[in-house]
Design a protein around this nucleic acid. Structure first.
Lengths: 347, 347
DNA sequence: ACTGTTGTGCAAAACGTTTTGGAAACCTAG
DNA sequence: CTAGGTTTCCAAAACGTTTTGCACAACAGT
């Protein structure tokens, strides 16, 4: 019993697809001509072209993009490296990146790292092996800085919303964190607040530092700072701790992101304080839940979508020309969304 | 003035990377040997191997994965087609898919369609041009059925959470929508509710129908059905309309997803009704905002992550063997999360 | 001395395209 | 009839790997 070269083993096996040679043979022309017919790269006699096209249809021929990419020297695919796609901020950013990529006919590989350095390395390997033409990098787990630095000059990379410490010379698109902090500061000041608690994010992140400094400067009043980790639990713990250790001597809380703000809200509620009557709370990011929460959270809207879109569009501008992008900064405007969690300072 | 072949135009141009030939030449061996050294596919004299490795390092040689893929006949990349990555359900699903892909060394291309048929077509083209080895399909915009059907037998495709109407013979992973509806029915019944409003999703989606039928069967009481579109606005409008047209003659509302439930909540609140005292509300999905809302929403937790992970893992099982997956169904368990939006029926 | 066996490395084919320099045939104008 | 132009198509090279068959040497066992 002979074995067929392809398929027929069982109906589940994938059969060899038609190649350009098959089409050429069936149409009685050379592969060159088939290529020209399909690409329109050079004129072909209309009669021959029609015959080729009919064979293409009959055989269901679709050019192998791999071979095309190999020849062209680029894949029309880029990567998007982020820590956690289930975080709505990054999901929005991804959406913007995907849109920008799609507009220029590029594909986008989702590189979700879960903050895992090995995983990040593996994905960065895709750019070194030239499987992707570029990378939009939005992770910023500090240990990866060195590796990134080595790649930066050789491959097209754009930084989205992360100004990694010590990484100058990069193409960067990010929200105006400083301005966001400032808006909050002005808002609370105008409501008569003079003493506030600020829950910051990790000190290593420039964005985190910028939010805090913008706030402190604009607020003018007294600010107590506590360092969190951008997670709900840390907002809860920091506030609960303060409440327990002899009370929270302030009329407003500014958390450097919404998640921590929610944690703070829970802690305050549990302590019998009501928001915004007793104390005002402000977040940062404007995630979906912010407007749905009770009370709806006053927060700084971050243009996550635009950050992703801008970073990607900028990157592609250079990728399409086969260039490594030069240093440049694109700062996107931020907006204060005043909702129900802030009110005039209690007296 | 002569033009250099690569780079040196300006420091921004990408220079030609070292190829296996360059390495071979520099090490005084054949490309074959270099390949064997790196792949370990055949033994090579340790002395020669060391020399080759040193040249590899010196030149910073990284094999071009494109060429490798072309030769191997597969790219180790699959696609994930979804309508909207910024929807937390799909973001979770994507996370599961990405994890499963990563485990087997596969990359994942994000195909976000925004429910746009053209966009979907373009992405499906990637599988026909064999740029991706398979596709996890989670969109289900009805018009694409025919196209999908044509692909199904020829390329590896898995359906995630969408049992597209009339598309049998597929590999499917989905949550147990029917059971979810049943759980809600039982819950409300046990709280003494006898008359309920059900806000369903589009009739064309099997999942939507299953949620409703499971609910109706288990609830037993009287059910008024209204068809929505899974968006917040439709939940709001449907309830507002009913309230206006002579009152809502029921003690509970079951929305086929959380977003519509939020819309319903808003409409009820605006009408002066309080939840859950006057009327209970239940959602479906358990998106992030559900637990943060006020009152926290009772809902059915859908294992989005597992759906994505299972669909992908199953698909890859066949992809790695070069087979098209056979029909099979993987139903994942669902869980009722009882929170603050449901209470015993008012009398 | 013959026959294997093992170790080592290379040449060439193959994967499926696109691109480029001509060749052949035909036309046109002088 | 010839020089130059057009039209139409093809052969071959190139993209960068992996795989396979083979050659050559060295060495062992008989």
């Amino acid at each position: 019993m002979t074995r067929e070269p392809y398929g027929a083993d069982h109906h589940t096996a994938v059969r060899r697809p038609a190649s350009i040679k098959d089409v050429a043979a069936a149409a009685g022309v050379s592969p060159t001509t088939v290529s020209h017919v399909l690409s329109g790269n050079r004129p072909v006699n209309e009669h021959t072209a029609a015959r080729v096209r009919s064979v293409v249809n009959r055989l269901g021929y679709v050019p192998a993009s791999l071979a095309r990419s190999l020849q062209a020297g680029s894949t029309s695919v880029i990567g998007l490296l982020i820590p956690d796609i289930s975080n709505t901020f990054f999901a929005e950013l991804a959406k913007g990146a995907e849109d920008a990529a799609h507009d220029l006919g590029y594909g986008l590989i989702l590189c979700n790292t879960e903050f895992d350095a090995d995983r990040e390395d593996r994905y960065l390997g895709m750019i070194r092996s030239r499987f992707i033409d570029g990378m939009v990098y939005a992770s910023g787990s500090p240990p990866s800085r060195r590796r990134l630095e080595a790649l930066m000059g050789k491959f097209p990379i754009a930084l989205a919303d992360e100004e990694v410490e010590g990484l100058e010379g990069a193409l960067i698109a990010s929200a105006d964190h400083e301005a966001g902090g400032r808006l909050v500061g002005e808002h609370l000041r105008s409501l008569g607040h003079r003493r506030a608690l600020m829950l910051t994010g990790p000190r290593a992140l420039k964005s985190s530092v910028a939010r805090a400094s913008g706030f402190v400067r604009a607020f003018g009043g007294e600010v107590v700072e506590r360092v969190g980790d951008f997670k709900e639990g840390s907002g809860y713990r920091l506030v609960a701790k303060l409440l327990q250790d002899g009370g929270l001597d302030c009329t407003a809380v500014f958390a450097a992101n919404d998640l921590m703000a929610f944690g703070a809200l829970t802690a305050l509620r549990e302590a019998g304080l009501s928001v915004p009557e007793d104390i005002s709370v402000v977040g940062f990011d404007d995630i979906r839940a912010a407007s749905l929460a009770h009370p709806p959270l006053t927060t700084v809207h971050q243009p996550a979508y635009d950050v992703g879109r801008t970073a990607t569009a900028q990157l592609l501008q250079y990728v399409t020309r086969g260039e490594v992008p030069p240093a440049s900064r694109h700062t996107l405007p931020v907006e204060l969304r005043v909702r129900g969690s802030t009110a005039p300072a209690a007296r």
